[in-house]
Design a protein around this nucleic acid. Structure first.
Lengths: 293, 293
DNA sequence: GCACGCCGATACTCCACGGGTATCGACCCG
DNA sequence: CGGGTCGATACCCGTGGAGTATCGGCGTGC
């Protein structure tokens, strides 16, 4: 009895996501019969029923739900293995070590700049910056596309990562400049939670669906920025974020919001001497910023 | 260009661990030539040299080191996928849900008993207890053999897990009853660190090698308990641990040692309603214990 | 110094299994 | 009841993974 092969996992994930063998086969670029057979073999090998064959198609069993979740994680790990190995090979060949740092576009701009400057000044490992949308850092780290990321507590999901706190700062509400709230010198969480006509925007879940609510659906920071400018929504973010500097935006301190912590995160067990050096540099720079500010 | 297959990863790990293709092939139950070829193909697919072919055998390149680490993690994830899916299937068939809880044999005995009692009294998911040696819990969780574990901060490696603190307690030194220290009512860390004739025991690293030092090499708690009884070593542990109650042992409070926290840990993203309920019960019981104690 | 042993690479043969086409059977419509 | 949509079955084919035999390079010992 040998292990599962990633091919089987890929096939199952496709079927489980499409809930339709024929479409899954198309997506995989193979014919439908071999895919049906592969799923059946997988079920025999695991001695578990993974899908219910109902007249109208298929449904996942509870074991199938478990495998879908586990298979996604396992495939990510396998993909990361390939990616990180390739990168290690390129680095060994060229003697050119590079750390890829993922960060939300527009957030923590000054800090990032200071870290990059200090890193270069110290002659440490070159840093490649990978700008991404909100919530993407975790995926990039898990996939191996990034070595380390700038993230924010309590906003980002830090599960599975090692972290080093850099700095803590208050939060501000970004409101349309034309709105009465923009004239206020400060607001409370209570006040911004239920402003008539300015419902909080909704971000997609991992599966792409949106939670229930009044707010507009958004998928990128720029979308959201424009919605604020249009007077349709507001949001609360750490003060240092730079993605929200349109003339139509006004930042108002939220006095009772929990402070937000900016930190470096990297996949547990995937640190390295390079990451350690970067963390040390970043901590020094962040400490300096606090001392100055 | 498709993904890596787990077969390739298994083959590479075997070769990297044996550093000898012929022995690795024996271990895998295949002949040597196909294994040589598989490794070469893997190198071509990744466009990276993984091993140096030197006259006396092979050596890992730096990319090879990376792949060894990554491949082990990926294979663990794949194995866990199979294991957890099988268990989900059995549970679905029999309608009999079971949580497997891993804990160091002998540690936190009263707390564990109280948790199990409360869990049963509440009629919650049945709990299977898996007793293991020090440091094994993390592996069991990652492999999917356990759903949740009792662990201790700052002793255990909690990276990659979600945790819920249960209780915090002082530490004691376990010394041979025949030793002068056994007569003391309390000691300091400083004092126990360098007792002539009682060097701290050394535990194996993950790769099985031992760190340098004077102390005896141990691989199980019982070995260590006997070494203490024999007057060869001492150790510092949380007070509630029960593995050290031989007549030849004496516990002496260590006044300045950091307190130890007992907690529940489970792999991030692999929680469930069952785990949530267990955590709630455990927190309630632990809170009660603190209130009473 | 040469023969032997160890180790990985190469050359080839073979067949098991992954994948293709054609078709069936079950069900849901109008 | 016929057409459409599914997944399952039957059967064939070719790739590629695995085997055997052998080679080449290098240490090592008498």
């Amino acid at each position: 009895m040998h292990d599962l092969e990633t091919r089987e996992l890929r096939y199952f994930v496709a079927v489980a996501e499409e809930l339709n063998v024929t479409r899954a086969a198309e997506r995989l670029g193979i014919a439908q019969p071999p895919l049906s057979r592969a799923i059946r073999q997988l079920e025999q090998r695991l001695e578990v029923q993974l899908i219910d064959r109902v007249p109208s198609g298929i449904r996942l069993t509870s074991a199938g739900e478990v495998l879908l979740r586990e298979a996604r994680a396992a495939l990510q790990a396998v993909g990361a293995a390939a990616l990180r190995t390739r990168r290690a090979g390129v680095e060994a060949e060229t003697g050119d070590r590079v750390l890829t740092l993922a960060t939300k576009a527009g957030s923590s701009h000054e800090l990032l700049q200071a870290i990059l400057d200090a890193n270069e000044a110290a002659g440490q490992t070159r840093i490649e910056v990978l700008l991404c949308e909100i919530g993407e850092q975790a995926t990039l780290l898990r996939e191996g596309a990034a070595d380390v990321a700038i993230m924010h507590r309590p906003f980002d999901d830090l599960a599975g990562f090692e972290t080093a706190d850099l700095l803590t700062e208050p939060q501000v509400a970004i409101v349309p400049s034309s709105h009465p709230l923009a004239a206020r010198s400060e607001v409370t969480r209570e006040e911004v939670a239920n402003v008539p006509g300015l419902p909080i925007a909704r971000w997609p879940r991992l599966d792409g669906s949106y939670p229930e609510g009044d707010g507009p659906e958004v998928r990128s920071q720029t979308q959201l920025a424009q919605l604020v400018a249009l007077g349709r929504t507001l949001l609360v973010i750490p003060r240092s974020s730079r993605a929200w500097q349109w003339p139509e935006h006004t930042a108002v301190p939220v006095v009772d919001a929990p402070h937000s912590t900016t930190l470096l995160a990297w996949p547990h067990g995937h640190g390295s001497a390079d990451v350690d050096r970067l963390v040390a540099t970043a901590e020094r720079v962040a400490g300096l910023a606090v001392a100055l500010g």
